[in-house]
């Protein structure tokens, strides 16, 4: 058992062996390793510095976890808010989507997903999720908030006329 005790506690040591061999091999190793693949990351790793956090406009979302929700949804919105404060938009979207899977027809969650998409400069995706939110919204105030964001999303896509109409609907509804 002595050997075992040594085995598990001794630091891993490398016998460097022959220096000439090392020199020769180091260069070939470097070349070989340079060719090794790394995982290609594609898509939505939208992380930003906290300095890039959006400013909150009047009548719109102040925090992702505001309002009262099902406790499980509330917990996920809190995690999403914490991720937002760290500027980790990928995590924000992940937590919001977990919340959506718990309550797949909760307009407040689509509203937040749309809002987060807008912050990530994805107005087309935001518009679709907001429309979905509008479909499920049972609350006038929330519907109007969604319409206001929808108008922003339309504007960002250059559809000024659609945005004006959406704002008109807001006024009509309020």
């Amino acid at each position: 058992m002595v050997g075992l005790a040594v085995l598990t506690s001794a630091p891993a040591a490398t016998d460097s062996g022959k220096p000439w061999l090392k020199l020769l091999l180091t260069s070939s190793l470097l070349v070989a390793l340079a060719g090794c693949s790394s995982v290609a990351m594609v898509g939505n790793g939208n992380n930003a510095d906290s300095a890039d956090l959006p400013t909150i406009s009047d009548g719109q979302l102040a925090r992702l976890d505001e309002g009262s929700h099902h406790p499980a949804v509330q917990a996920l919105l809190q995690r999403a808010e914490a991720a937002r404060q760290q500027g980790n938009w990928s995590k924000v979207m992940s937590y919001l989507d977990q919340a959506r899977q718990i309550q797949p027809r909760n307009a407040a969650i689509y509203y937040r997903q749309g809002w987060a998409n807008l912050q990530m400069h994805q107005p087309a995706a935001a518009e679709q999720l907001l429309q979905r939110g509008l479909l499920y919204s049972q609350d006038d105030q929330l519907s109007n908030r969604i319409r206001a964001l929808l108008a922003d999303a339309m504007e960002q896509q250059g559809r000024l006329q659609d945005a004006r109409q959406m704002r008109a609907q807001m006024r009509g509804a309020s």
Binding site: V39, M41, V42, G43, N44, G45, S90, K91, M93, S94, L96, D97, R100, Q113, A125, Q128, L129, Q131, R132
Partner: peptide, 28 residues
């Protein structure tokens, strides 16, 4: 609401670093 049928939620490295996470996307 037309959505691609989705089988993947997220991908991480062997060390646990998130590479991709996917959320709902679609179009009315």
């Amino acid at each position: 609401f037309q959505m691609p049928l989705r089988a993947v939620e997220a991908v991480t490295t062997s060390q646990g670093t998130t590479l991709s996470s996917y959320a709902i996307q679609g179009k009315q």
